[in-house]
C-alpha cells in the first residue's frame, strides 16, 4: 500500500500538471459522433429525395404508363421504362441462377471439404474477386469472354436449336456477337459470387460443430450432412445472402454497360442485346436534358426502390454475425 502511494507521489512530481479532459471536449465528441451517424441517414434520405424530385416531371407526364411502356424515343420525348426494367430483372435473375449454386458450392468447399492450410488462401482468392473493379469485368467480358462465347457457344447452339419450338426462340442468336443478355448475366454471376459465398461461409461456420459431428457420428455422408443438417440450419441466412447478391446484381453498372449491347428492344432471345436501368443511365445521362434527364432520374428512382426493398429483406434475413 505504502509503495503504491509513493509511486503516485513520484509520478505526480514528475508531471505536476494533471491533464484534464474538458467537459466541452467530452460533449463535443459525443455530438460529433452523433452528427456523423445522422449523416448516414441524411445520405439515404438525400438519395431518395433527389430521385423523386428529379424524376417527378417524367412520372407526372407519363403516369403509370412510364413503367409499362416500352417506347424510349429521345427525339420524340416519349419515354417508357419497361425494356430497362425487364432487362434489369432478367439479367439479375440469370446471375442468380448461375451464381447461387456456385457460391453455395464454394462456401461448402471452404467450410467442409477444404484442408485447413488451404482455407485462408482460397478464401482470399474468392474475396479478391470482389475487389476487382467493375470496369475490369466489363473489359474482360467484352474483349475476352464475348468472342469466345460467340464462337464456341452461340454459333453451335444457334445451329442446333434453329427451327425448334421455344428453344429456337430463347437460344437463337440473330447476330452471334457474344454481347447480350446472357453474357451480362454470366458476368454479373461472377461478380456476385464472392458476396454470397463469403456470407454463406460465415453462416455455415456459425453452426455448432456438435450438430455436424453428431450427423457424421450416425454415419451420414458429407452430402447428407450438408443437405439435412447444414443447409436447413443456415437456411434463412442463405436466402438473405442471395438477396444481397440480387441487390448487387440489380444495380451493377459498368460491367453490364460493356456487355449488354445497349439496345432498347424487348426480345425473347437471351442472346439479343438489351439494356438495364443502370446501363441506360450510364450511357445517356451526360447528354440528357429536360424531360429526358427527368426520365433517367425516374429510372433511377425505380431502381432505388427495388434495390432498397431487396437489400432491406436481405438485411432482415441475415442474422448479423454475432461478436463475442
Amino acid at each position: 500500500m505504502a509503495v503504491l502511494s509513493d509511486e503516485i507521489i513520484v509520478s505526480n512530481n514528475m508531471q505536476p500538471v494533471r491533464r484534464r479532459t474538458s467537459p466541452v471536449f467530452d460533449q463535443g465528441f459525443r455530438w460529433a459522433s452523433y452528427g456523423s451517424a445522422l449523416i448516414v441517414l441524411a445520405v439515404l434520405a438525400g438519395i431518395i429525395g433527389t430521385m423523386i424530385y428529379g424524376g417527378w416531371p417524367a412520372f407526372q407526364e407519363f403516369g403509370f404508363g412510364f413503367v409499362t411502356s416500352s417506347i424510349w424515343n429521345v427525339g420524340g420525348e416519349q419515354f417508357g421504362a419497361w425494356v430497362a426494367i425487364a432487362g434489369t430483372l432478367t439479367s439479375a435473375l440469370i446471375a442468380l441462377v448461375i451464381g447461387v449454386p456456385i457460391s453455395i458450392g464454394i462456401a461448402i468447399f471452404l467450410t467442409q471439404l477444404c484442408p485447413s492450410w488451404l482455407r485462408r488462401p482460397v478464401s482470399t482468392v474468392i474475396e479478391l474477386l470482389a475487389a476487382v473493379p467493375s470496369i475490369i469485368y466489363g473489359m474482360w467480358g467484352l474483349f475476352v469472354f464475348a468472342p469466345l462465347f460467340a464462337n464456341y457457344v452461340q454459333v453451335p447452339l444457334t445451329n442446333i436449336v434453329e427451327g425448334m419450338p421455344i428453344l429456337g426462340t430463347i437460344l437463337y442468336a440473330r447476330v452471334p456477337s457474344g454481347v447480350g443478355m446472357l453474357t451480362a448475366g454470366i458476368i454479373l454471376a461472377i461478380m456476385i459470387i464472392p458476396f454470397i459465398a463469403s456470407i454463406t461461409r460465415d453462416m455455415l461456420d456459425q453452426i455448432p460443430s456438435i450438430l455436424r459431428e453428431s450427423a457424421y457420428g450416425i454415419g451420414c455422408t458429407t452430402w447428407e450432412v450438408v443437405r439435412h443438417v447444414l443447409l436447413p440450419q443456415a437456411g434463412v441466412s442463405i436466402i438473405g445472402a442471395v438477396m444481397l447478391g440480387l441487390g448487387r446484381a440489380l444495380g451493377e453498372t459498368m460491367a453490364v454497360t460493356f456487355v449488354i449491347g445497349n439496345a432498347n428492344r424487348l426480345s425473347l432471345s437471351l442472346f439479343d442485346p438489351s439494356s438495364t436501368i443502370a446501363s441506360r443511365i450510364a450511357n445517356e445521362f451526360n447528354e440528357a436534358s429536360g424531360l429526358h434527364m427527368s426520365a433517367l432520374l425516374a429510372l433511377g428512382c425505380i431502381l432505388f426502390v427495388v434495390t432498397f426493398i431487396v437489400l432491406a429483406l436481405a438485411r432482415l434475413l441475415i442474422a448479423r454475425v454475432k461478436t463475442p
Binding site: V40, E252, L311
Partner: peptide
C-alpha cells in the same frame, strides 16, 4: 440498417445524387 443498405446501394445512383446536389 440504413448503413448496411448504403453499403450495397448501386453506385451509379450516388453519382446521380451528387450531380443534383
Amino acid at each position: 440498417f440504413v448503413n448496411d443498405i448504403l453499403l450495397a446501394a448501386p453506385s451509379i445512383l450516388i453519382g446521380l445524387f451528387v450531380y443534383i446536389l
